[in-house]
């Protein structure tokens, strides 16, 4: 993944989201060590302090836990926590934006649902 350096989103949040995606994708197992700040710094060409800040967001949310001197590990119910958070926050925000745009264009709910179904089909193909 290449980070969006010019976009609005701070880099450390992008790091946190990338880690979440890795976890959701099943690439990191529960109680397994996650990437260190130095590994992330090298992968994304950023200062390790910035990477650490991204890791700390997840640690504060209980998605990661720290083992002294060993690094960060994936918490037992991390997957659910992320799903819960994304469903109630990230997805909700995205949908809000979609609804606002639809209203601006005068698209009613039925038509919007249709567009969404269509998009889903296209992704499957």
């Amino acid at each position: 993944m290449v980070l969006d350096m010019v976009g609005d989103k701070p880099v450390y949040i992008q790091i946190a989201e990338w880690l979440e995606n890795e976890i959701l994708g099943g690439d990191i197992k529960e109680n397994e060590k996650v990437y260190s700040q130095y590994q992330l710094a090298e992968m994304f060409n950023i200062n390790p302090a910035t990477a650490a800040r991204g890791i700390n967001i997840l640690a504060e949310q209980g998605i990661l836990y720290k083992k002294r001197g060993l690094g960060m590990f994936l918490a037992a119910n991390a997957m659910e926590k992320i799903q819960h958070k994304r469903r109630n926050y990230t997805l909700k925000k995205l949908v809000e934006k979609v609804v606002v745009e639809a209203r601006r264009l005068g698209i009613d709910e039925e038509e919007l649902l249709g567009i969404m179904r269509q998009a889903g089909k296209e992704l499957d193909e």
Partner: peptide, 9 residues
């Protein structure tokens, strides 16, 4: 700042 921004702490 330009390209240096991301590697700075």
């Amino acid at each position: 700042l330009n390209e240096a921004e991301d590697i700075l702490e």
